[in-house]
Structures are given as structure tokens and as C-alpha cells.
């Protein structure tokens, strides 16, 4: 019985701790996503502006490779955000046509594997004719992730331990209460009110029906043997 109770309490403590760990991890992931989306949204605005210009030119019949003024626009936009490493305009096959970084001209932007943010450039047929690609310093994401991770660790560990310990303490407390209830239940005098009322009713009916007039509250039947007699004494001592 004691082993069972302890086992149960341990299982519950583990569940509580696991849930807290879960919560901390999900919070971390959510914050991480929020962090990234904020940063990417910022770079996305710049990419969007370039894409708009390219689309308007395309609609006037200036083919993408001919939009040479885009280089200066890319340069300007890339300079506004120091974290932007390069900003390219690639054709629909991903070949960089213009870039704020001259070294990237002519390469296939998808091949450099760098973390890139893209916005499509579409013509009036709604066909994608190219992409604006922003590459930014991955360090700012990593730094944010590290800071968030540290902050949450400081919070999550005490919470996790606290939840586990609190569960164990309450579990032991409940187990003690249960034990006490069991001991009290051995003595009808210490039974819960509903049981005492039922007992009293039973005795009243029994006494009346049996036509006998036994006195007092002696335990019913012919078994007021040792244990039940000791019950009340025990409970009184404890009370």
C-alpha cells in the first residue's frame, strides 16, 4: 500500500515536471518564431519595395535583365539595414541579375545555401518572372535564440523542480490524510456524518423491530470484540 502510494506520487510528480518542461519548451519555440518573424518582416519590407519597382517596370515592358537601375536601388535598400548582407534580384531560374554585392552577379542564388528571404516578382500574367532575395546575417537570429534560451532556462528549471516537489509534498499530505481516514473509519464513532446518521438510523430501526431496548451506543451485533472496542479509545487519544 505504501509502495503503491509512493509510486503513484512519483508518477504524478514526473507528469507535472514533464508538463512544465513541455510548456517551457513550447514557449521557447514560440518566442523564437516571433523573433524570427519580426526580423524577417523587417527585411521583407525592403524586399517588397524592390519587387514593386521591378513589377512596375516589367509591366511597362522593361524586361527584368534590362532593369539596370535596380542595382542602385538594391544598394540603397541594403545599406539602410546593416544586418543585410546582400540583396539580389534573381530571374525566374534563380540566376542573380543584379545585386548589392557585385560578387554575386551571375551565380545561382539558391546554390549558396545561405539563409535567404525571397519575394516573388510577377508580371501582369501573374507569372513569376524573378525573385528579390535578401540574405541577412544569421548571427542576429542565433544571438536572439541564445538570449531567449538563457532567459527561459532561468525560469523553467525552478518551475520544474518546484512543480515536482510541490506534487510530492501534496501527494504525501494526501496519503497521510488517507491513512488517518482509514484509522478513523475503524471506529464508528469517528465515521463521517453521513455514515453515522445511517448507522444511527439502522440501530434505531433494529432496536425497534427487535423490540429490545439495549442501552447506549454500544457497537451493534455480537462482535464488540477487541478491535472495535479499541477503536474509539485510539481515536480519542489521537484527537
Amino acid at each position: 500500500m505504501a509502495r503503491t502510494t509512493l509510486g503513484l506520487i512519483a508518477v504524478f510528480a514526473l507528469i507535472a515536471a514533464a508538463c512544465v518542461a513541455f510548456g517551457a519548451y513550447f514557449s521557447y519555440v514560440t518566442l523564437l518564431n516571433a523573433h524570427r518573424s519580426v526580423i524577417e518582416a523587417r527585411f521583407g519590407i525592403a524586399a517588397e519595395r524592390v519587387a514593386d519597382v521591378a513589377e512596375q517596370a516589367a509591366s511597362l515592358g522593361i524586361a527584368l535583365p534590362a532593369q539596370s537601375t535596380l542595382t542602385s536601388l538594391l544598394d540603397r535598400e541594403a545599406r539602410v539595414e546593416p544586418a543585410i548582407r546582400s540583396m539580389d534580384l534573381a530571374d525566374e531560374r534563380g540566376i542573380v541579375l543584379f545585386s548589392s554585392d557585385p560578387a554575386r552577379l551571375g551565380i545561382a542564388e539558391a546554390q549558396d545555401g545561405g539563409r535567404g528571404l525571397t519575394r516573388p516578382v510577377r508580371n501582369d500574367l501573374n507569372e513569376v518572372v524573378g525573385h528579390v532575395v535578401v540574405r541577412y546575417d544569421p548571427q542576429i537570429l542565433a544571438a536572439g535564440a541564445a538570449a531567449l534560451g538563457n532567459d527561459l532556462k532561468v525560469i523553467a528549471l525552478p518551475a520544474l523542480i518546484g512543480a515536482g516537489v510541490a506534487t510530492i509534498v501534496i501527494g504525501l499530505l494526501l496519503a497521510a490524510l488517507l491513512r488517518r481516514a482509514v484509522r478513523r473509519a475503524a471506529d464508528p464513532g469517528a465515521w463521517p456524518p453521513a455514515a453515522r446518521a445511517a448507522l444511527a438510523a439502522a440501530e434505531r430501526v433494529h432496536n425497534e423491530v427487535a423490540g429490545k431496548s439495549r442501552s447506549g451506543k454500544s457497537p451493534p451485533g455480537k462482535s464488540p470484540s477487541g478491535k472495535s472496542a479499541r477503536g474509539p479509545a485510539e481515536s480519542r487519544r489521537r484527537a
Binding site: 512544465v20 510548456g23 517551457a24 514557449s27 514560440t30 518566442l31 516571433a34 523573433h35 519580426v38 536572439g144 538570449a147 531567449l148 532567459d151 527561459l152 532561468v154 525560469i155 523553467a156 518551475a159 518546484g162
Partner: peptide, 14 residues
């Protein structure tokens, strides 16, 4: 408690 911690982390980093 973790929510409160997340709030603080967000304030500092995000």
C-alpha cells in the same frame, strides 16, 4: 510563472 518569464524574455530580446 513560465508565462511571466517568457514575457520578460520577450521584453529583453524581441
Amino acid at each position: 510563472f513560465i508565462g511571466w518569464g517568457a514575457e520578460r524574455a520577450a521584453q529583453r530580446t524581441i
